Computed example of a mutant assay.
Amino acid sequence: MHHILASIWPIFVLILAGYGMKRLNFPSDGFWYGAERLNYFILFPALLFSSLSTAPLNNPALPRLLVAIILVLSVLGLGLVVLRYVRKWPASHFGVLLQGVLRFNTYLGIAVIGSLYHREGLSMALLMIAILVPIVNFISVLAFSAGQHTSVRALLAPIAKNPLILSCLAGIFFNLSGAELQWGTDRFLTLLANTSLPLGLLSVGSALQLHHIRGQLTTLVLNSSARLLMAPLITFIVARLMQLPSIETTILVLFFALPTAPTAYVLSQQMGGNSDLMASIITFQTLFSALSLLLVLALVV
């Protein structure tokens, strides 16, 4: 437990620092908007591209991780679809709740796994990101469009413009091409990538909106429990049934124990979802995960 605490407390201190800085209006409101866009469109895509362009895509773990991820997403997704028809949720509400259960905070995941498992764990984590990011974003867009007369172009546009998906695909294609980063390009991308995580964690803290939590506590508790407790339990069962190695099991479980992505708020706004509820879920899950991650890691590490 001691090494787990030592690995993750700096991460949550950065998140709390971001929250405090935003409340104190430091450096300014305009800074946080620019920082989020810079990280989302340039710094974090640079990290994904540089890592995936040199990742061992011939890793024998990749096919079984893909199967495990699809199984977990299928169980969670089908459960949500059943609940939608039982509770008669509109697409604007369903899409938000689905994002709360299926999406994950990539910044937090990379930071925690890098602290615990260093280069070996980070390499495997990036393989999972390359699988999860396109699939989860597609499912999220589909959830908001369910039951609406939406063209294929309108459905695919948010996915085709997603910088995380594009950088993952670009990194994979570059890797498979056999090309190499030359003339200091690898160093340039590394400098951008090294800036991404601390800025991303500060931005996560700055986006927390505690005032949104009031009045929606039951929904927040149920959705957060599904994401932070039930999802990792289902993942652990799937990993055990597939007899995955210990490190693969741990990292896979950890990904499904992460709070939902802050960028889920942006997609909710773009797709006409209940963005206030999405902001509440992001805030509540991020705070709740400080305890739930400790519990999950204590059980599987």
Rank of each mutant, 00 (worst) to 15 (best):
L176M: 13
P163C: 05
L199Y: 06
I135L: 12
H211P: 05
R187K: 02
L191M: 15
I159T: 10
P198K: 02
G147R: 07
I135W: 06
F144W: 10
L192K: 08
S203P: 03
Q182R: 11
L156Y: 07
D186H: 04
P163N: 00
G147T: 11
S177Q: 12
S145H: 13
I139P: 03
L169A: 09
F188N: 10
I159D: 02
H211I: 03
F174N: 04
R153S: 07
A154M: 11
Q209N: 15
L164N: 02
P158S: 06
G205Q: 02
L164F: 09
A179P: 11
R153K: 14
S196F: 03
S177F: 09
T150G: 14
L217T: 15
S203I: 00
C168T: 06
N137F: 02
Q148E: 03
N162C: 03
L181R: 12
F173N: 07
I131N: 00
D186T: 08
A193F: 08
I139H: 01
L210F: 12
L197H: 00
Q216N: 07
S206E: 05
S145I: 02
G171C: 06
L189V: 08
A207I: 07
T190R: 05
I159M: 13
L201K: 13
T190H: 05
L217C: 14
N194T: 11
K161S: 14
Q216C: 02
L181K: 00
V204F: 08
L132R: 01
L181G: 08
F188K: 02
A179V: 09
L197T: 13
R214P: 03
N162Y: 11
L142K: 13
S206M: 02
F173S: 13
L176Y: 02
P198H: 07
A179K: 14
L210T: 14
V152E: 04
I139A: 12
L191T: 09
G171K: 00
S203G: 11
S151W: 01
A170C: 10
N162G: 06
A160W: 01
A207Q: 12
I165G: 01
L197I: 12
C168H: 12
S145M: 00
N162D: 07
A157D: 04
L155V: 05
L166A: 10
G171E: 00
F173Q: 08
I131G: 01
L199Q: 11
Q209G: 09
L142D: 09
L166Q: 04
T185W: 08
S177Y: 05
L217V: 15
L169I: 01
G205H: 10
L191C: 13
D186M: 06
G178M: 11
L191V: 15
Q209L: 13
I172A: 08
E180F: 05
F138M: 13
D186N: 12
W183N: 15
L166K: 00
A154I: 09
G184L: 15
V136W: 06
T190L: 12
L191P: 13
Q216M: 12
A207C: 11
A193Y: 07
P163H: 05
V141A: 15
H212L: 01
R214L: 07
A193I: 05
L132H: 11
I165K: 03
L191G: 12
S206F: 10
L217G: 15
F144A: 10
S203V: 14
R214H: 04
Q216T: 01
L155K: 15
G178K: 11
G205M: 08
G178S: 14
L217R: 12
L156K: 04
